[in-house]
């Protein structure tokens, strides 16, 4: 008799677990469908760096705005250029919502990307974009906290070095939460603008 009870209870638990798993995945998948980037959802680490006008800027100053952060270096004509062009198109797609979004470019090559260099590079894409640099130590700390990878890549075929680096774009919501990550293959200005409109609604 006791043995039978145990079997029934075990079966019940397994059934419930099965249902739980099903519902969990169901909602998770549905949530995934809602946005084009990958859901991240954690508090965005705060940092202070120097902008392309030489002014100290702290991330939390933008609280209330949605922030798009991308990582790169100015001597990178293919990937970084494409990313910044996509972000420029995102701003166009947004229309009036544009002034509730801040695009931030953080250099992962602080030795080369001085304030002056960023100052002539970043505004080319959009006057509202902010380029950030700092000491190599400051950049390293921010990159670590955001799980951003970068490495100098030396070769005989180019002077100095190029950088291998994380090409994803990070979306921080107006409450200061790191909310979505767009990998390079997901960088589509229309899709990103759609997500932003949904979040700012």
């Amino acid at each position: 008799m006791k043995k039978r009870h145990t079997t029934i209870i075990t079966l019940l638990i397994l059934t419930l677990l099965g249902w739980g798993l099903f519902l969990y995945q169901y909602f998770l998948l549905e949530n995934k469908d809602k946005y084009h980037g990958f859901l991240y959802y954690k508090q965005a680490p705060n940092f202070t760096l120097t902008d392309h006008n030489g002014k100290k800027v702290t991330l939390s100053e933008f609280r209330g705005k949605l922030i798009l952060i991308n990582w790169g270096y100015t001597r990178c004509p293919d990937i970084c250029f494409t990313t910044l062009s996509v972000l420029r198109d995102v701003m166009k797609e947004l229309g009036e919502l544009e002034n509730r979004v801040q695009v931030v470019f953080v250099t992962i090559d602080p030795e080369m990307d001085t304030v002056e260099k960023l100052g002539t590079y970043i505004p080319y894409f959009n006057k509202s974009f902010i380029g950030l640099t700092g000491t190599p130590q400051e950049i390293e700390k921010v990159a670590q906290e955001y799980n951003v990878f970068y490495l100098k890549n030396y070769s005989d075929s180019w002077p100095e070095y190029l950088m291998d680096h994380t090409s994803s774009v990070y979306l921080i919501d107006p409450q200061g939460r790191l909310f979505l990550i767009y990998t390079y293959d997901k960088l589509d200005s229309k899709a990103i603008a759609k997500d932003i409109k949904k979040i700012l609604k």
């Binding site: 990178c76 990937i79 990878f149 890549n153 070769s155 291998d164 680096h165 994380t166 090409s167």
Partner: peptide, 8 residues
Amino acid sequence: KGIAKMEK
């Protein structure tokens, strides 16, 4: 991992 590299 989303890391961009350039190779010759």
